[in-house]
Design a binder for these strands. Structure first.
Length: 214
DNA sequence: CTTTGGATCGTCT
DNA sequence: GACGATCCAAAGG
């Protein structure tokens, strides 16, 4: 069950890798889950990307070789996980936005006590990192090392869980304020673990409140 | 059901 | 000093 994805899979543009990652398996320790939603982030030309203004200490993993994990900390409390794509020096990445767990429900539940339903365990980029225990220690890890405790593998359809072919849908990325019209969000049609089911670019908050004083 | 505001802190202006 | 590639709970219809 370990057919780990190889470097060549990741050495493509992020908008090609992002749909390609749908249906693949993320393995973190003994936990496994199926990726069901992703977003592509480009390099210099993508104003929504962390790499848009050039390399910094925070985003340096994006500038490294493809197939490594870029983990960042945001909103003072959440981690998000990306897979670096493209070629070395070309900062592209794919954000993992949602996962369908395949095992370990008890552990996931313990790490996500506020989840009301099973779907809430991993249906968001910050949620899945908490549930799978992904944090800053995982930043920069090479996902193609077969012996690693964090890898990506092609769908093995383990333990009788059927992997029927799903159709892929696309739409605008979520939670960004620039380049809101690019359709670089990808998800498996109808999958119940997808983070948002009715989302359009118009839902972006352009109405930022002017600073309140207190 | 939808909308709104608070939490909380590393990073960059 | 402002703002997030977010999440959650409370308030509003």
């Amino acid at each position: 069950m370990s057919n780990t994805l190889e470097r060549s899979f990741f050495a493509r543009d992020s908008d090609e890798v992002a749909p390609g990652l749908l249906g693949t398996i993320l393995n973190v320790g003994s936990l496994t889950g199926r990726i069901v939603e992703t977003e592509a982030y480009g390099g210099a030309e993508d104003s929504a990307s962390h790499a848009w203004r050039g390399e910094t200490l925070r985003n340096s993993t994006m500038f490294g070789p493809p197939g490594h994990l870029y983990v960042y900390f945001t909103y003072g409390m959440h981690f998000c996980a990306n897979v670096v794509t493209g070629s070395q020096g070309d900062p592209q990445a794919v954000l993992i936005r949602a996962i369908e767990p395949l095992n370990g429900w008890k552990v996931l539940r313990e790490r996500r006590p506020k989840a009301h339903t099973d779907f809430d365990l991993t249906n968001g980029p910050g949620k899945l990192c908490a549930a799978f225990g992904i944090n800053r220690e995982h930043n920069g890890r090479d996902l193609t090392e077969k012996q690693s405790d964090i890898t990506l593998s092609s769908d093995p359809s383990p333990s009788g869980i059927p992997s029927h072919p799903d159709s892929i849908r696309t739409g605008p990325r979520i939670g960004i304020s620039r380049a809101v019209d690019l359709p670089w969000r990808f998800w498996l049609d109808g999958n119940l673990f997808v983070s948002k089911h009715n989302y359009s670019a118009k839902q972006q908050r352009h109405d930022k409140v002017s600073p309140r004083k207190k």
